[in-house]
Structure formats: structure tokens, C-alpha cells
Simulated assay, not measured.
Amino acid sequence: MYRLGIIGTGNMGRAIIGGVLKEGILKPGEIICYDRVREAMAKTVSEFGVSGAGSAPEVARSSDSILLAVKPQNLHEVGQELSGQAEGKLLVSILAGKRAEEVRDAVGGVRVVRAMPNTPCLVGKGVTGLYASPDVTEDERKFVLTLFNAVGKADYFEKEDLLDAVTAFTGSGPAYVSLLIEALADGAVLCGLPRSVANEFAPALVEGTAALIREKKIHPAVAKEMVMSPGGTTAEGVAVLEERGFRSSLIEAVRAAFEKCREL
């Protein structure tokens, strides 16, 4: 019996396999995977040394826990395939917008942990919000937390509705930060820096500032004041951002994404 079965070996499924192996949480022989795109599954098996299955039901039958990493629109199709094959087992769903009850009803007889990871999980720097159905055991909660901590930082929320806020914040957040990085680089080019330098410095700037705030345990406002001298260049730039609604635009972007998530 495998400790973890993964259905769907796309970017996120592969990231989780890579993370748990790198951190020594599981061994290759403890993982089995399946993807209907055989080339994707073969690549995963070859790269990580895990086992490959012939079908999704085979994964369900031969695993203690199942990670469902297919596209949300494929839930009910996969659920029909798994019907009666996963009863009494833990199923971890990373299907955006699919509530735990809907996943349980589609698959049948499973205990569900719902996870909302984001794309930085691909490089081990992700943020994942988790919600566990009441019937999930404490040991199972700890196991799932360990899986996602292997690709970044994860935490549980006791109210499932809060995963909509997580989706709007950390799920969509990489797009907001990417837009910031792109705009900073464009500004540097406008001021005369070579594009190659701007494109290298901009993400390093954001990464370094985040590390400063996190490691020194300071509020972002303190980090801002560290470089904002009275009447200086930074103060001038911040004044323009405030005048153009930079702060409120980000707040409204998160709110709009949250409302959209609740509509889905």
C-alpha cells in the first residue's frame, strides 16, 4: 500500500512530489501517480522514481491518502471513475472553487481536506490555505500540513468560506506581484537602465524587501520608513503612488477577486 496517491501530474502535482521527496517526508516507493496524459505521467515517473498507475481507480485502491490535482471542471468525471474505490480514505483536493462537500459527494465516502496552493509552490516558496472537514483525523491534518509545508508555508482555516479570501489574496497574488515587478522594471528602463539589468534587479528587489520584512519581523510601514527621508527621492515617489491610488487599487483588486470567487 502506497502512503500517497496523486491523480493529476500537472505543475502542482509534480511540485508536491518534488517537495515531499526533497524534504524526505516520503520516499519514491511510497508514492504512486496517474495522469490521463500518459506522457506527463511517464515524465513524472522517470524524473522522481515514483510508481505509475494504469488508472485513477488503481491509485485510489492502492493508496492510504489521495491527492486530487485535476482541473476543477473534471471533478465529476473523475468522481465517477473513483466511485466506490476510495471509500473511507483521506482525499486532498486542490481544485479551485470546489467546496469540500461537493468533492465528497462527487467521489463518495471520503474524508476531504481542501487546499488552495499558489504558483510559487513550483519553486518551494508557496503559500497554501487548508480546510479540513470535521471527520478528518488529527493525524491526517498533520500529514496534509506536512505535505504543503514541503513546498512553502501552509496553515488551516476553521471556516471553509475563508478559502475564498485566500484564493483572492495568495492565489491571485502572484499576478499582482508580477505586475508590480514588470512595472518597476519598465520604470527603470524609462530612466535609462538596460532592460537586462532591470529585469534581473526588479524581482530581486521584491524578494529582498520581503526577506527584510519577514526576517527582521518588522511591519511593512517600518521597511518603507527606512528608505523614506523627509523631502527625499523615495518620499516623492511614494507621493505619486498615493496620488494615483496604488494602495487602494491593490485593496480593491483583492476585494474584486474575492467577490468573483464567491460567485463561481
Rank of each mutant, 00 (worst) to 15 (best):
V166T: 10
T128H: 13
V144Y: 03
V127G: 10
T146G: 08
L147P: 02
L147Q: 03
Y156T: 05
A165H: 11
E138W: 01
L162Q: 14
G129C: 07
A132R: 02
K142P: 03
G129E: 08
K159T: 12
L130W: 12
A165L: 15
S133V: 00
T128F: 12
V144T: 00
E158V: 10
A165C: 07
R141H: 05
E158H: 10
D139A: 07
A132K: 00
V127W: 09
L163C: 02
E140K: 08
F157K: 07
D161W: 12
V127F: 13
T128Q: 14
L145G: 00
V127T: 15
D161L: 09
D161F: 12
N149C: 02
Y156A: 03
K153A: 13
D135F: 07
L130T: 12
T128K: 14
K142Q: 05
T137Y: 06
P134C: 08
S133Y: 02
V151F: 05
D161Y: 14
D164I: 11
L130H: 09
E160K: 03
D139N: 09
E138L: 04
V136M: 01
V166R: 09
D135C: 07
V127Y: 09
A154S: 12
A132P: 02
L145H: 01
R141T: 03
L147I: 07
E160D: 06
V127M: 14
A132I: 01
V151R: 14
D155Q: 12
L162V: 06
R141D: 03
G152S: 08
F143K: 04
D161K: 11
Y156I: 02
K159Q: 14
E140H: 02
P134R: 08
T128I: 12
T146A: 14
L147C: 08
V151I: 15
L147K: 04
G152E: 11
A154C: 10
F157P: 09
D135N: 09
F148P: 02
D135K: 11
E140N: 05
Y131D: 03
V136W: 01
A154Y: 12
T137P: 02
N149S: 09
K153Y: 13
K159Y: 09
A154F: 09
Y131Q: 03
N149H: 08
D155I: 10
P134G: 05
L130D: 13
F148S: 00
E160G: 07
V151K: 13
D139Q: 08
K159S: 10
N149I: 07
V166K: 13
L145Y: 03
